[in-house]
Design a binder for these strands. Sequence first.
DNA 1: TACCTTTACGGGCACGTGCCCGTAATCCAT
DNA 2: ATGGATTACGGGCACGTGCCCGTAAAGGTA
Lengths: 352, 352
Amino acid sequence: MEKENELFGVKEIARRANVSTATVDRVLHNRTGVSEKTKAKINAIIKEMDYQPNILASRLASRKIISLAALLPDVSEETDFWAAPLNGIRRAEAEMRQYGVQVQVFLFDLNDKDSFAEQLKHILDGGFHGILVSPSFIEETRKFATECARRKIPYVFIDSDIPDLHSLSYIGPHLRKSGYVGAKLLTYRLEAEKKVLIINISKEIDNYNYLEIEDGFRAYFNDNNQQNEIVRIDIRETDYQSVARHLTYVFHLNKDIGAAFVTNSRVHTVASFLKNSHRTHVSLIGYDFVKENVGYLESNVIDFLICHRPDDQGYRGMMALYQTLVVNAPVTKQNYMPIDIVTKENYEFYQN
Amino acid sequence: MEKENELFGVKEIARRANVSTATVDRVLHNRTGVSEKTKAKINAIIKEMDYQPNILASRLASRKIISLAALLPDVSEETDFWAAPLNGIRRAEAEMRQYGVQVQVFLFDLNDKDSFAEQLKHILDGGFHGILVSPSFIEETRKFATECARRKIPYVFIDSDIPDLHSLSYIGPHLRKSGYVGAKLLTYRLEAEKKVLIINISKEIDNYNYLEIEDGFRAYFNDNNQQNEIVRIDIRETDYQSVARHLTYVFHLNKDIGAAFVTNSRVHTVASFLKNSHRTHVSLIGYDFVKENVGYLESNVIDFLICHRPDDQGYRGMMALYQTLVVNAPVTKQNYMPIDIVTKENYEFYQN
DNA sequence: TACCTTTACGGGCACGTGCCCGTAATCCAT
DNA sequence: ATGGATTACGGGCACGTGCCCGTAAAGGTA
């Protein structure tokens, strides 16, 4: 029944320090206008109380809205892979909106390096407080990162990392290990005398991802004394005709290929070829939960898909920015996603 | 430079309806004291504006703290499986705390039905606003659910479902499909003439989970014309000696067992037996990312573990309660978790 | 001393909602 | 008609923080 006279937060700090809340506020946001002496006193009290600001009240009182930008490849005819991260970003946006955070999404063309650079410029001009990027092109990203560092704008990478650029956080796969897992699945029931085919289909020359994955793939063969011969092919066109032509040639040269591994989401093109040429006995493994791939999973042409939760990548990437800018909490710098194995039997529950 | 005179939220509604904010508030929380006429008018305006209450302001203004309860099995010597959902619950708690939500965790002994009932009673006496339960025992849960329904307290189930009890939400695996996936992995490189062994190790007689999983397992064999003979064994003691004794017998009777499937996280006990009796050529698949199991995954005794993201289950379960009680948003009733496949090669990135 | 600038700080409103308390208006029974 | 109960509604403070504005005190210059 007694009146609780305890104050919380800023008011309590102010009471203990014999100052007004405004002064405490100045110290909290290290603004000028406080003498060193009172500043020290207030800081001591803050530390002693282990004061945690009330984010609700803070966001409510502050009319300034925090705006975040995200730069992703556009969904293309070839693949709707990037719909998933976008979806995760939207999910994050919905959560953050009520706390006064706005999100703007920028898209670029994966086959056009210039569009990437151009969008980055737009973003830098937009005065955003935090930025999420899928760093598809290394040099352009490097310039961008330098500029962000100068302006003290935090940025996170998703899907592929450029380790020396000191992003606030990386959220995506450990590509090398991912290739390693692919090799395990591929060889799990592979006969000893069969050959293995690695296929990379990509217009870009910037193939850091591919190299990492292949490296991991081969590492598995080494680590496990797997004796199968490995054949590799690079295909620089992504249309079906080109792919089919190259593959016809490879299969002609190598009669005893027992399994194929495609290093990205274009595995459905290979699946299509295998089906059309009546080679579905060849085990096939590739990447990403996109609808074309799932179709071939369903019809047993693709054996396994490896996925890295692209939806979650988008979500977590945005949340990392939120954590630093709004909650002011630390985030982990490396955030490797699980290497998920998707089959005909479990895909319906997969939450990409 | 002009003064923006737009009002937001409740004030704007009040202005348009020519009433005070207090009256609008009464309608929003459907409290008494508003005539039908003004109520209708206000509701119309709310709908027209598509008014979304500001949760920040709401939680800030309302001094009442929302308290949630969670009931889980205690971590036992046999398995630390339940540490994961608990961890997810803690994660959710950390997020919700700043919004005035408190979480209290209750634990029971999986081998003691009474402790389950007792804790449920405590929870009901605690006056919680929402409850998360791992419904291990059907009858006790049924009573509890009835009482909750009477008191209009929302409750969610995780890990296993009792479909007819109308929980707010179920978050956990589709057990039948999970068994189906187990069968796929088990047979993926199984020779045709080998036998398959299903092992259930559990003290409880309440084995709804087990039946569902086995049903799915067998369904795979049917659907795919898999001809292998299936042997099944129920072991009602969980200690190593008992398990070893039973297994010795089974393996004695069936010389040509090529693969074994354990329906729960006690697969490490079987792994131990296989290792000790030099039968590591037998493929072994079981459930859950617990450290004993991971150890045998590492040493190639267990081939695959199937997991259902127990951490996420705890997190999402609590968030479902938060969504209804705080945000007042609808939640999906069935929330089947992905059926994850964990191997020696990808476990280090698994985020249970 | 008179006046101006800078420093250091307090007062107090605003954010959008919850909810207590007060009161005019209406209804009902005597 | 009088009094009491009920209904329908408004006023206004509070939540914890951000930040504008005002001002006393200190310092500087002539």
